[in-house]
Design a protein around this nucleic acid. Structure first.
Lengths: 137, 137
DNA sequence: TCTACACCCTGTAGCAACTACAGGGTCAAG
DNA sequence: CTTGACCCTGTAGTTGCTACAGGGTGTAGA
């Protein structure tokens, strides 16, 4: 499988595949006589794992740790669970933050009654943080 | 006001203030004889506006457009409203995505029953996207 | 007066996680 | 024999900062 096929098979940008190889997330594949990368099914599986993990929001370093567990099946599963649990906590925190944000934003937008910028309630709200009812990060 | 005072007054990192000046978000202030930046209250207000906008998740370019409206008070307020409304839509989309993500993650985590990585359901789920009930980005 | 220390300056490099070239080589079809 | 699709390496750009390195300035105490 050449890099273009792997790219199509996994929905991953070619540059991204090469990037993953460069940072050591994917092992370097064999090369053809023309120096083209030649991938096999194991590479495809591994890349799919990486992509899926990334889609779920795991960082590259987290993916690296997860791949480490894949490569060492005798190790404790609890490590994977810990990574996932911590990530879930981050996601939940982010959701909370964004919901707060959404509240602030709709309040600010709701104040707009048209006219010129000089009288703009949106701009006024942005200038004056004390108008906010809640804190935001 | 020297940069350190402005930094404390607005809760902004000194490096960040200089960065904002470099990218033209803040106007370059006057300098003292020792070549120190000398800020006044207008600078403080402007930086507070920038910080608040950034806290609300507006991009630097969006902040730039908003500042443009501040500097041209005769312009239509609807531009500010448009920027904010578009941003709100982005925030709402992100919330939806994260909620989907949260669902996927808790499902994956819920499957963990301990043991070694070879039998790990978390890793299994990451390897096999087809187990997901919903799509994720 | 010396010196310690907090503060300021510029310029550049680093972070995450890619993405986008530039400038070349390879290979099969028409 | 040329066109076009594909591949290669290496480097620079993206966003929004943050972190130095290697200097200068200003003031308080010994």
């Amino acid at each position: 499988m050449k890099i273009g096929e792997l790219s199509r098979a996994t929905g991953t940008n070619i540059e991204t595949i090469r990037y993953y190889e460069r940072i050591g997330l994917l092992k370097a594949p064999a090369r053809t006589s023309a120096n083209y990368r030649a991938y096999d099914d194991l590479h495809r599986t591994r890349l799919a794992f990486v992509r899926h993990s990334r889609e779920l929001g795991f960082s590259i370093e987290e993916v690296r740790s997860l791949l480490d567990l894949v490569d060492n099946p005798e190790r404790e599963c609890s490590q994977a669970d810990q990574i996932a649990t911590r990530h879930l906590a981050k996601v939940e925190k982010k959701i909370d933050q964004l919901i707060t944000l959404r509240g602030e934003l709709s309040q600010i937008i709701g104040r707009c009654r048209g006219g010129v910028a000089a009288d703009c309630r949106v701009i006024e709200s942005l200038a004056d943080h004390t108008m906010c009812h809640r804190d935001h990060v």
